[in-house]
């Protein structure tokens, strides 16, 4: 006897949509506010704005050497600088998917959707690995 497919959307779609909407708006707003503090000189930048054109065409390695710009999560200890403060908003935007997937994982586990929970757990692992800055490559 042929098995029937039940066509349905994941009920979690709507929760996911709400989380994306609120957190991405928060991230965008925070990023723009940080950028305003930066370009209007409210907070002094690590690299003076007038000198930026000398550096932005350099390779990443040279840029980091000459400016001392932070890598990894070091920016969190440098929030007094104008060119670092927009990273709060950028980080919120980069974290939206992680927060959504965390909510999905709980939902899928609650309703026993093991395969979907496994996929979500894998994705969370990949995002965590990328965000942690633990993987390094040597040149």
């Amino acid at each position: 006897m042929e098995k029937y497919i039940v066509f349905e959307n994941a009920p979690e779609q709507h929760i996911y949509a709400k989380i994306i909407y609120h957190i991405s708006n928060l991230g965008l707003l925070t990023m723009i506010m940080g950028f305003i503090l930066y370009i209007f000189g409210v907070l002094t930048p690590l690299v003076p704005l007038e000198e930026l054109p000398k550096y932005w065409s350099l390779s990443l390695t040279q840029f980091l050497e000459k400016t001392g710009a932070p890598t990894g999560w070091r920016w969190t200890a440098m929030l007094g600088y104008g060119d670092v403060i927009p990273f709060i908003g950028v980080t919120i935007l980069a974290s939206v998917t992680f927060v959504c997937f965390l909510a999905l994982l709980f939902r899928f586990l609650q309703r026993g959707a093991k395969v979907l929970a496994f996929i979500v757990a894998m994705e969370l692992f990949f995002i965590l690995i990328s965000a942690s800055n633990l993987i390094q490559i040597s040149h």
Partner: peptide
């Protein structure tokens, strides 16, 4: 999002 984190951690994201 995974690639964006890597570029950000390596310092390749300039707010300007």
């Amino acid at each position: 999002s995974t690639a964006a984190w890597i570029y950000m951690n390596k310092g390749a994201v300039l707010p300007i």
